[in-house]
Computed example of a mutant assay.
Amino acid sequence: MNHQAIEHCGQLLWLLPDKSIYWPAQRALLVADVHIGKAASYRALHQPVPRGTTEANFARLDALLEAYDCESLIVLGDFLHARTARAPATLARLHAWRERHQDLKIVLIRGNHDRNAGDPPASLNIEVQDEPWILGPFALQHEPKAHPTHPVLAGHVHPVFVLRGKARQRLRLPCFLIDAQVSLLPAFGEFTGGWEVTPAGTSQVYLAGAGRVWPL
């Protein structure tokens, strides 16, 4: 997999094309905004949305966990989309996926959707933490709010950057926004949308697309 290695706050981080970060020193895979069950929630409202997004999320996680030496998976909030994500069929898929990774430590930092959906069932053996969760030099959070003493890695925003070409050509890509105070991960989940970011002078944008990550 083509990743972009960066040094951030004294740590080597690999920005991965599949909208996640691998932290070698911690043997940890970081993702944000998985939103399991989001499409099912919309279908419950009789909205015509894609099927198979939950299985696609799990397949992508499987591929990442196989490709990288991961001791833990850290979710920076919004693991489940809503209470409708606790439907029996969705939970059955989630349990089947967890059984394939029984030895993996999973830590969920509660996001706004997690507070609405409720914590994952105890049978999934997922450690749940309130933000901020301090690990190494970082404050791991869902909300992109500055921490008084630690640089932040966060989600919530679903950042995207729009490349503009000639004749109104536009290419909208998920991105990582790396900053000394608050850095953002793109949304990992399928069918999550995005919010266009405009980097400040101190921020570096890394685009994710076409199987690679590259600096803007």
Rank of each mutant, 00 (worst) to 15 (best):
N2A: 14
H3M: 03
A5H: 08
A5T: 13
A5W: 01
I6Y: 01
I6L: 11
E7C: 06
L13Q: 00
W14T: 03
W14G: 02
I21S: 11
Y22E: 06
V31H: 05
I36R: 06
K38G: 11
K38P: 10
A39I: 02
S41A: 15
H46N: 15
V49N: 05
T54N: 15
A56R: 12
L61C: 04
D62S: 05
D62A: 07
D69Y: 07
D69R: 11
S72C: 13
L73A: 06
G77Y: 00
F79E: 00
A85M: 00
A85R: 12
P88I: 00
A89H: 09
R93H: 05
A96V: 02
R98E: 11
R98T: 03
E99H: 12
E99K: 15
H101K: 08
L108Q: 08
G111W: 04
N112V: 07
H113M: 09
D114R: 01
R115I: 00
P120I: 00
P121S: 13
S123W: 06
S123N: 15
I126D: 14
E127L: 11
V128K: 07
V128D: 11
P132F: 02
I134H: 07
P137W: 00
P137S: 04
Q141S: 13
Q141C: 15
H142F: 00
E143N: 12
P144L: 07
H147I: 08
H156C: 08
H156Q: 08
V157I: 15
R164S: 09
G165A: 01
A167H: 11
Q169H: 04
R172D: 12
Q181W: 05
S183A: 06
G189E: 04
E190R: 08
T192N: 14
G194N: 02
G194D: 03
W195D: 09
E196C: 02
E196S: 12
T198H: 10
A200K: 15
Q204W: 02
L207R: 05
G209D: 05
G211M: 00
R212G: 08
W214F: 15
